[in-house]
Design a protein around this nucleic acid. Structure first.
Lengths: 149, 149
DNA sequence: TTTGATCTTGAAATTCATTTTCACATTACA
DNA sequence: TGTAATGTGAAAATGAATTTCAAGATCAAA
């Protein structure tokens, strides 16, 4: 973790950037925080320790991490962009449209089939995103209605 | 097509809605227009024939169609929500981050694997979305840089 | 067909996430 | 240490999407 932050800082340096306390604080909090966090959540979290850090810096830092490949932008259709660390192994999402729960899953076979598809189209994949929307076990049992029903 | 519009109108009626010329015009244009259209594009198209129709009505109509299951909301990460008719068979997308080209593909095997995954989690799927981002054949050959590089 | 309740509309106002601007602070490196 | 460049935060700007509201349509009952 300590090492990770150092690596990122050095990558920024060698790309012509500079170190910054604010950015370091945001990055550390980001890799600490639960996954699928929004800018708003992360800003609040960072501010408990560094009250003067602005939301703009959080936006900028997350965008930077995404550009460098350390974070992934997500969209679960609720109007707020979410970010997750891209360091843990790749996974996709089951999103419950009733209670908002997000279940992560990993499926190598699906990935392999995706590679076949891209190959067939001469397409060079860089990233992908698979989200399945529906009702989680609990909400399906309750027979409750979802956001779009 | 004529029949489709009639069906939708009747579904709206039996749900307590009323007929409307504006909405009919938007719907007809929507099913005529190329896929992956934005509200802005569709508004412009509708207005060539009905200049007084407002963008608000287009927003409302597309949202309605999505709620009724006749349209699907998409997000290719370029800041504008897109809609496609959900009448043609389901497919997913390869999105070129260099030139913006969108290639549709269909893969039953991937869908089957998805069903297995949801089953395993007791999840009742209602919709899913799979987008693969990267470079299309042409842009990969050119060695050009993409939006996020 | 008139009436009246209800839905729909379009323009303008509003909301809300995100981006840009800008003056000032911080950092890197000579 | 000087200084050129990058980073910061507050406020302003942007832009897509939604809400509001008064006026216009539509439908069903009388």
């Amino acid at each position: 973790m300590k090492a990770l932050l150092k690596d990122i800082e050095e990558e920024i340096l060698s790309a012509g950037g500079k170190r910054s306390r604010s950015r370091a604080a945001v990055m550390e909090q980001f890799f600490r925080t639960r996954n699928h966090t929004t800018v708003e959540e992360l800003t609040r979290a960072v501010r408990t320790r560094f009250p003067r850090i602005g939301a703009v810096t959080v936006y900028r830092t997350l965008k930077l991490l995404a550009r460098m490949g350390y974070a992934t932008e997500l969209d679960f259709g609720d109007g707020a962009r979410r970010y997750e660390s891209s360091l843990s192994s790749h996974h996709d999402h089951l999103v419950c449209t009733v209670c908002g729960a997000v279940i992560e899953f990993e499926n190598k076979d699906i990935e392999k089939l995706q590679d076949l598809v891209t190959l067939r189209h001469g397409f060079r994949p860089a990233a992908h995103r698979l989200e399945i929307f529906g009702r989680c076990r609990k909400c399906a049992a309750n027979g409750a209605e979802g956001r779009n029903e």
